[in-house]
Nucleic acid binder design. Structure first.
Length: 487
DNA sequence: AGCACA
């Protein structure tokens, strides 16, 4: 009895507000799904493209009776439920609510995060990107940047509808060949939504555009010349002068912190901002002065000198293309001295509290910060490839223009990044409109109260540490581990 | 055509 009476209902579950639909057409859109279901009630949630074939879906109604009405309607209907001509099978789900598995990148917004796979930054001009995406509506702004994930662009549309139209049409597809340099093989587009609402574009440049504001200044440093100056290990070229210095630190056997750099470079004038980052496994830093004169003086005096005796942490200085860094005010990789330091109070507390956990206890007396190489590479906090929204990065709008939600786009401020194809840009070269994002590490306060590098009167303002400041590190010992991150 | 964690 039980078997026969259950025969027809072998696959029916107890009623649920959630319906399970199968045999949908491949990648059935949410729109199609809603069209099918909405005659029966109000839909609170959906989940499309479920299963390996992406042909299943879930629909959740507000009211159980609505789900029941849909199931019973099609149970007795001579016309099956259909989408795109395919019969759709409907039953109660064995769950009672749809848990939204949407990754942040799937939450629609008006800004798309586009990863262009398999290309160098210079292979796809911003104009090509604009062309491709303009097909779906007015493109307000574009910001491009390069990360380990590849060449990426944030593309701002008017609204989420336009953005999703572009996403639906272009995700997984390629930019037409004829728009690309010959050497480019494939270039798939991977598109998700950014959490950004409004990009803060500072300059028209070959990296960024604001099409709503044609009067936006073109990045002037970029115009002065083709600043394709790849900085070799000791490369200095004829960059146009700038108030921002780019320092490459060679033979970095000892930690070079924001504070160290601040001390060193302050000898020539007010240091406004500092950012430290990794480029091709080498530590580099940007140091911003108020004016070019100061920067030039610092560059002249410091070029080729070492922060520490023994050839350690040798500085190579060139001019950056930046004129105003956009840095997180208080991170362990960046500092903005033009904003008040809220953590001065906290500095009373244990200095080591936030410090690198790998660091050994402070050395008595001399140089607390320098016991071991603080791996600048410990930046797991922002995996470049992740598209996840990381609320902890939400930053002051004025400070972090484009960085808020998604991948903190470590912009391509680094000189070697670009390549020559961008000449198609009518506007400018090599500007970097965007700021520098560094990891969201707790603020770094004055951590070198005593043992910080001391200035050497009479000679270069470079620092010398006391003997004890060069602890058990053997010269020539291993270089900092794990720093080969951001290309 | 058969129940969702990327």
């Amino acid at each position: 009895m039980s078997t026969s009476s259950q025969h027809q209902f072998r696959y029916t579950q107890t009623p649920s507000k959630v319906l399970h639909l199968r045999n949908l057409p491949w990648e059935c859109s949410e729109e199609e799904l809603r069209e099918l279901c909405k005659p029966f009630g109000k839909i609170v949630n959906t989940k499309c493209n479920v299963g390996a074939n992406r042909n299943q879906a879930f629909v959740e109604f507000v009211d159980l009776n609505q789900a029941i009405s849909m199931v019973s309607y099609y149970a007795s209907s001579s016309e099956p439920a259909m989408v795109r001509g395919k019969t759709v099978y409907i039953q109660y789900s064995n769950r009672h609510e749809i848990v939204n598995n949407k990754s942040p990148g799937d939450i629609p917004g008006n800004v798309l995060l586009v990863t262009i796979e398999g290309v160098e930054a210079g292979d796809v001009s911003i104009d090509v990107i604009h062309l491709v995406f303009s097909a779906f509506g007015f493109v307000h702004k574009i910001a491009t940047f390069e990360k380990t994930a590849g060449f990426q662009a944030l593309i701002q549309f008017t609204d989420a509808e336009t953005a999703s139209a572009a996403r639906d049409a272009l995700d997984g597809r390629s930019i037409p060949r004829y728009l690309l340099p010959a050497h480019v093989g494939s270039c798939n587009l991977r598109i998700s939504y950014s959490a950004h609402k409004d990009l803060n574009i500072k300059f028209q440049s070959n990296r960024s555009r604001d099409y709503t504001n044609p009067m936006l200044p073109v990045n002037y440093t970029a115009i002065e010349g083709t600043v394709q100056t790849a900085i070799g290990p000791d490369g200095k070229r004829k960059e146009p002068e700038s108030n921002v210095l780019l320092a490459s630190i060679e033979n970095m056997q000892y930690a070079v912190t924001v504070d160290v750099l601040h001390t060193v470079f302050s000898a020539f004038g007010t240091v406004q901002k500092i950012a430290i980052f990794e480029k091709n496994g080498q530590t580099q830093a940007l140091i911003q002065y108020p004016d070019v004169i100061t920067a030039a003086a610092a560059r002249e005096a410091l070029e080729g000198h070492c922060i520490y005796d023994g050839g350690y942490c040798k500085l190579h200085l060139s001019y950056s293309r930046h004129t105003d860094l956009n840095v997180k005010a208080f991170s362990d990789k960046s500092r903005d001295y033009t904003v008040p330091d809220p953590s001065l109070l906290a500095a009373q507390g244990p200095v080591t509290a936030w410090q690198n956990p790998q660091a050994a206890p402070m050395y008595p007396g001399s140089a607390p910060g320098y016991h071991t190489q603080v791996p600048g590479g410990q930046v797991p906090s922002w995996d470049p490839s992740l598209q996840a929204v990381r609320p902890s990065y939400i930053s002051a709008p004025g400070t972090f223009p484009v960085q808020t939600g998604t991948v903190p786009p470590m912009p391509s401020y680094a000189p070697a990044a670009s390549s020559p194809h961008a000449q198609s840009s009518p506007i400018g070269h090599n500007a970097n409109p965007m700021g520098i994002s560094q990891s969201g590490v707790p603020p770094n306060v004055n951590l070198q109260p005593s043992g910080a590098p001391l200035s050497v009167p009479g000679s270069s303002p470079l620092m010398q540490t006391s003997q004890a400041a060069q602890p058990n590190a053997r010269p020539g010992a291993a270089s900092p581990p794990g720093q080969h991150y951001y290309a």
